[in-house]
């Protein structure tokens, strides 16, 4: 199982990393971070121009149980899971990607 987790983390892309990072940051500030914010931020960073890609990244993280999607009101908010936290920790320690700031969270 440990090998599988390693492999999953190894295959995460920058978009996945940033989503995990912003979800954790949002949660740390008790701000709700939803899929639309996530799309806006990814677009702002120049990583994607389509909402489908942003949704695909979030769906993948959700399928891997790295984030939990909760429908709250008419929004689907992202919460990082314990597995997601470990995955993010591994990525941060490897310094594979550079964190970027979320326009949504910075603007709060």
């Amino acid at each position: 199982m440990k090998d599988l987790f390693e492999e999953q983390v190894e295959n995460l892309s920058e978009a996945h990393f940033l989503v995990l990072y912003w979800a954790a940051q949002g949660e740390g500030r008790q701000a709700k971070y939803n899929i639309t914010n996530c799309f806006d931020d990814l677009k702002h960073c120049g990583i994607t121009r389509t909402k489908q890609t942003a949704v695909a990244a979030v769906e993948a993280l959700s399928a891997l149980r790295f984030v939990t999607l909760r429908g709250e009101g008419n929004r689907r908010n992202l919460y990082i899971s314990r597995h997601g936290a470990r995955a993010l920790e591994a990525l941060v320690l490897r310094q594979k990607f550079t964190p970027r700031s979320s326009a949504y969270l910075e603007g709060l």
Partner: peptide, 12 residues
Amino acid sequence: DILQVLKRLGKL
């Protein structure tokens, strides 16, 4: 530090 945040949230 994002790792501090995760620890504070009790996820690490």
